[in-house]
């Protein structure tokens, strides 16, 4: 089953894995992005993710359809969590089921890259010193 979802709840990876699988499948790749305790050397205590919900889910679906068309994989799940996430939390899951490992790994890799490039989601770093700042905001000082 394909799954394209923006959620403010913890990502349930077991449910994602159990939702996929079919007789023609010989490979399943699960990639998880997690919240790191630093960014470019500066200590962080977590992230806040802002989202344009309707457009983000439409973009996830578009990416999934591209992956199936371009790589010939069978099923795709793309799930992104939003809101405040502590260090270690899973922020994004990409799960791809395919016939063989080569195209399945390639599709999962392309999937996470495209999610980061084209889905309208923005992260704000909560620095360990108590301040916070949006990523890519050149004018930010708070």
């Amino acid at each position: 089953m394909d799954l394209y979802q923006i959620t403010d709840q913890p990502i349930d990876t077991v449910e994602i894995l159990q939702g996929q699988g079919e007789p023609g499948a010989g490979a399943q790749v699960l990639f998880l992005g997690t919240v790191r305790n630093e960014f470019e050397g500066r200590a962080s205590r977590g992230l806040y993710y802002d989202v344009y919900p309707q457009m983000a889910e439409a973009q996830l679906r578009k990416i999934g359809e591209e992956l199936k068309r371009e790589f010939g994989v069978l099923q795709v799940a793309l799930v992104h969590r939003i809101g405040d996430l502590p260090v270690g939390a899973v922020s994004v899951a990409v799960c791809v089921t395919g016939g063989h490992r080569d195209e399945t790994f390639a599709a999962a890799r392309a999937g996470i890259d495209r999610v980061k490039q084209t889905v309208p989601i923005w992260k704000k770093e909560h620095w360990d010193d108590g301040t916070s700042a949006w990523h890519d905001d050149a004018g930010s000082s708070t």
Partner: peptide, 9 residues
């Protein structure tokens, strides 16, 4: 919508 560079993941 006015959209800053996206930074999900």
């Amino acid at each position: 919508a006015v959209v800053p560079p996206v930074s999900g993941g």
